[in-house]
Simulated scan of single mutants.
Amino acid sequence: MDTIPARLDHIVLATPDLAATVAEFTRRTGVVPAPGGAHVGHGTRNHLVGLGGRAYLEILGPDPEQPEPTGPRPFGVDGLDAPRTITWAISPQDLDATVAGARAQGYDPGDVRDMSRRRPDGTLLRWRLTDGGSPHPSGLVPFLIDWGTTPHPSASGLPVTPLREMTATAPDPDEIRPLLAALGTGLSLTEGPAAFSFTVDTPNGPITFT
């Protein structure tokens, strides 16, 4: 199958130390991720790199300029001791219809909620996404996102490292595939511990992240 999932919006690389991970990404690839902005109230901020087309990589970690959030930071950042590819997102043509269709097939992507972040230039970006509800423990089933009228991050002049492939392993790939199909996407899966791998083209040659 195609090693780039259908409707891929972005890949989330979470880290306990955002500055260190951005520096390491720059060292390995020769490409400097662009500051994305702060998730106000959630205690995180991000840097972004285009993956070609409308897809991008989000490097997300704690924001030292924000006070401690009242709840846990997104994507289990507080429990990480090293950078890790946590999950991914797809952007269906109709988010609400995709959620309803998946539920009809026995998979609940979770409720849809509003999110926002403020870019360094002060622009407030707003979008809708599925909150995951009770996400699949593997992290291999994507959440859904709808940018609405907000300009897509990939259109903001990001540095680009084109995505060559995105693959994963799972203890039981046949359990995951129907859930992906219910969302109208797929992922190249083989048997093994639950984990992601993606490879990008860079000035330093192809580089793989896990």
Rank of each mutant, 00 (worst) to 15 (best):
T15H: 04
T44S: 11
G50N: 02
R84P: 03
P135G: 09
A155R: 12
D96K: 10
P62L: 05
L183R: 05
T130Y: 04
H47M: 09
L129C: 14
I11G: 02
N204Y: 11
P83N: 10
G186L: 02
T208S: 14
H152A: 08
L60Q: 09
G50E: 00
A23K: 14
F25K: 03
V22F: 03
P83E: 04
P135M: 05
F209A: 09
G37M: 02
H10V: 06
L187E: 00
V49S: 11
G157I: 04
A55G: 10
T3N: 10
V49L: 15
P5D: 02
A195P: 01
L189F: 06
A23Q: 15
R164T: 09
D63F: 07
D172K: 06
L189C: 05
G132D: 00
L144W: 03
D114S: 12
G36L: 00
G76R: 10
A100N: 10
A181S: 15
G184S: 12
L48F: 13
G148A: 08
T185E: 05
D81G: 13
I145T: 14
P173G: 05
I86M: 15
D94Q: 09
T202N: 09
I176G: 02
T161L: 13
R28Q: 14
I176A: 04
D114Y: 08
P72V: 08
A102H: 00
G53I: 01
D63V: 06
P120G: 05
E191G: 13
G186K: 01
P171C: 11
P173K: 06
A89I: 04
G50V: 00
S91V: 02
H136W: 07
P162S: 09
T185A: 09
A82K: 14
V99D: 01
T21Y: 04
P142D: 01
M1I: 05
R119Y: 07
D174E: 15
L180W: 01
G192D: 01
G30F: 04
I59T: 05
A6T: 13
F143A: 06
L18M: 12
R84G: 07
T85F: 14
R54A: 14
A104E: 10
Q93S: 10
G186P: 01
G205T: 08
L158S: 08
S134C: 05
A100E: 14
A181Q: 15
Q93K: 12
W88V: 04
P153H: 07
F75C: 11
A34Q: 15
P72Y: 13
A14W: 00
R117C: 06
M166R: 05
D172A: 12
T210V: 10
G122E: 01
Q66C: 07
D108E: 06
P62D: 03
H136T: 07
R28K: 13
I176C: 07
T70E: 15
T185F: 06
P137D: 05
T15K: 07
G53V: 00
I176S: 02
A104S: 14
G37L: 01
A34F: 11
T149F: 14
